[in-house]
Amino acid sequence: NQASVVANQLIPINTALTLVMMRSEVVTPVGIPAEDIPRLVSMQVSRAVPLGTTLMPDMVKGYA
């Protein structure tokens, strides 16, 4: 089972991601792979992401 990136806190719209905002977790459906966490740092979210939400490619500007 592949771990995905999950929000560790509420991430407001247009916030630049930092390591403390993200954790890896095995979830369904699968989201952005956990190994991409270093690449996500400083990228902005395109919408508010609630705590515990799996990050999907369309939620991060410039990821897809």
Rank of each mutant, 00 (worst) to 15 (best):
R23W: 03
S46M: 12
T54G: 03
A7F: 02
T18D: 08
V30C: 13
A3G: 14
L40A: 00
V30N: 11
V30D: 15
E35H: 12
I37N: 01
T15K: 05
E35T: 11
D58C: 15
L40G: 00
V6F: 01
M22G: 01
Q9N: 10
Q2I: 13
T54Y: 02
P33K: 07
R47E: 15
A7D: 02
V6L: 14
S42V: 03
R39M: 12
L10C: 06
M43K: 11
M43N: 06
V26C: 07
V5G: 00
P33Q: 08
T53C: 08
P33R: 10
T53S: 10
V49R: 03
Q9K: 09
G31M: 02
A16P: 06
I13L: 11
I13V: 10
Q44L: 11
V5W: 01
R47F: 05
L55W: 00
L17Y: 00
L10K: 08
P33I: 15
V5L: 03
P38V: 13
Q2M: 07
L40M: 12
N1R: 03
Q44W: 06
G52Y: 04
G31E: 01
M43Q: 09
M59F: 08
M21Y: 06
A3Y: 15
L17K: 00
L51G: 14
M56H: 10
V45K: 00
V45C: 04
V60F: 04
N14Q: 10
L10F: 09
N14T: 05
V26M: 06
V45H: 00
M59L: 06
V26T: 10
L55Y: 02
L10S: 11
I32M: 03
T28G: 06
V49L: 10
I32T: 00
T28Q: 09
P57Y: 06
N1P: 15
D36R: 07
P50W: 05
P57G: 11
Q9F: 10
V45Q: 01
D36V: 10
S4Y: 03
R39P: 00
A3Q: 13
M56S: 08
A3E: 15
R23K: 14
M56Y: 12
A48R: 09
V26L: 12
N14Y: 10
T54Q: 03
L10R: 07
I11A: 00
P57T: 10
M21S: 04
V20N: 13
L10A: 12
N14I: 03
A3L: 14
M21G: 03
M43H: 10
I11R: 00
T18A: 06
V27M: 08
L19V: 09
D58V: 09
V20Y: 08
P50M: 14
A34M: 13
D36I: 08
A34N: 06
V41D: 03
D58W: 07
R23L: 06
R39Q: 12
N8W: 03
P12R: 08
L17W: 01
M59N: 07
P38S: 11
I11W: 00
Q44S: 11
L40Y: 02
A48K: 07
Q44H: 09
G31T: 02
I37K: 07
M21V: 03
L40T: 00
E35N: 09
R47P: 03
N14W: 07
E35K: 08
L55R: 00
P12A: 11
L51K: 15
M43A: 08
N14M: 06
M21F: 04
I13H: 13
V20C: 10
D36Y: 10
Y63S: 04
R23E: 05
E25M: 06
A64C: 15
T28D: 15
V60H: 01
A16M: 09
V41C: 05
S46E: 15
G62T: 04
V45W: 00
V45T: 13
V6R: 04
L10G: 12
E35R: 04
I11D: 00
T15W: 06
A64W: 03
L40Q: 00
Y63D: 03
K61T: 14
Y63M: 07
S4L: 01
E25G: 11
N1I: 15
G62P: 03
V5F: 00
T28R: 03
A64V: 14
V20E: 14
A7T: 15
D58E: 09
I37E: 03
G31L: 02
M21L: 07
P38E: 10
K61D: 12
T53V: 14
M22K: 00
S4V: 02
M56A: 08
I32V: 08
G52V: 02
N1Q: 15
P57C: 13
A3C: 09
A48V: 13
M22T: 02
V30P: 12
A64N: 12
